Simulated scan of single mutants.
Amino acid sequence: MSTPSPKNNLATGAHYYIKGINLLWRKELRLYIIAPLLINVLIFISLTSTLFHYFNSGMEWMLDFLPSFLHFLKWIVGLLVGVFLLLCYGYIFNAITNIIASPFYGILAQKTQELIAGTTPQDEPLGTLIPRVIAREIHKLIYFISRGAFVFILLFILGFMTITAPLVPVIAALWGAWCMAVQYVDYTCDNNQLAFTPMRKRLRANLYSSTGFGGMVMFASMIPIINIFAMPAAVTGGTAFWIKELQWQEES
């Protein structure tokens, strides 16, 4: 059975994302982030305008569930609801951009690996690469939806109980962090022909680093404008995570 890396901690995981941001400025990668950035800008404009249009009505609708004798807690509940809605916004933004931009992210991950480690995944024609990467994205989406359904039911139940309601954004954030780690480490794993299930096992064996990295991605994706650059940085940071902490880990 594989053992967690001694680097396995939240701070190290967060550092991989910071490294990913720094890598975006390397001239060797600039060409490969143009297309993802353009896609992100278009999705950002559409999704953010929709969020602002429905945000207030959504807040009022959710606060209507608060019992009258707890109205003095309205500002706290409003804050929790706001955080939850921002988490939903970040997750939806990621889901849409990843489906559309996944072939470009695969290429960016490959070039990042060449830059950091000097190694090159096996070459693959674009005609084979693009359908394979899109199929992998759909596989991940099915995983996120199937597991996420159980998380949603849990959050729904907890949200109706006053004593457990504050746990809702915490659990949602942890689930979002895990999803982001899976999503953005997978591009490099896919390039190196590591199957989806073994990839998740390696992330679980380095759970603290995975949570630190995924949490940073989730946080950045919740912030308008910053989230335009958050996804390419997550790809380059996820590649660094793979090279430094996951690449040589044996399977159980």
Rank of each mutant, 00 (worst) to 15 (best):
A181C: 04
I116P: 14
A240V: 05
L37P: 03
M216W: 01
I92S: 00
L126S: 00
A165H: 04
I34V: 14
Q122H: 08
E114A: 11
Y187G: 00
F52M: 10
G82W: 05
K74H: 12
L63D: 11
Y89L: 09
A95Q: 14
F44E: 07
K244Q: 10
T128A: 14
L80V: 03
I223G: 12
W248K: 12
F93P: 07
F152H: 05
M59H: 10
H53C: 02
I107S: 00
P131A: 06
F72D: 14
G148V: 09
V81C: 06
N94Q: 10
S46K: 01
I145F: 09
I171E: 05
G106R: 01
E245Y: 04
I116T: 03
K74S: 15
V77Y: 13
H15P: 08
R204Y: 15
T3W: 14
S221F: 09
P103F: 04
G20N: 04
N191Y: 03
T164K: 04
T112I: 01
G82E: 08
G212D: 09
A195S: 06
K74P: 07
R30T: 02
R132H: 03
M231N: 06
L174N: 03
T112D: 07
L29Q: 06
S49G: 11
S57T: 06
P67Q: 01
D64I: 04
N191H: 01
S57H: 12
P67L: 05
L63W: 10
Q193D: 15
R30P: 02
I92A: 08
I99Q: 00
I34A: 10
Y184Q: 09
A230I: 02
M216K: 01
V41L: 13
S209V: 05
F52K: 11
Y187E: 00
E250D: 15
L203I: 02
L87N: 11
L51R: 06
S49Y: 13
N94V: 07
N22I: 02
Y184N: 04
I226P: 14
T211V: 15
F93Y: 15
Y91Q: 13
A14W: 06
I134V: 10
F93E: 11
P224S: 08
K111P: 05
F160M: 14
M59A: 08
Q113C: 14
V168H: 09
V170M: 04
S102K: 08
W242P: 06
P232V: 07
E114N: 08
A35Q: 04
L203A: 04
K244R: 02
E124R: 09
F144L: 11
P169R: 03
N9P: 03
R202W: 13
W178P: 09
P232R: 03
T48N: 12
N56I: 07
K27S: 15
G214Q: 08
P125G: 02
T188N: 08
K19C: 09
K201S: 13
K74F: 00
V83L: 10
F196V: 05
E137L: 05
A117N: 02
I21N: 07
F55I: 00
I157Y: 11
Q249Y: 00
L174F: 11
W75R: 13
T12D: 05
I226M: 12
I34Q: 09
Y32S: 07
F52Q: 09
S68Y: 03
L115F: 07
T197L: 06
F84A: 12
T50F: 15
A35D: 01
G90V: 03
F84D: 00
A234Y: 07
G215P: 06
P36L: 01
V182I: 10
V77M: 13
F84N: 11
Q110V: 05
L38S: 11
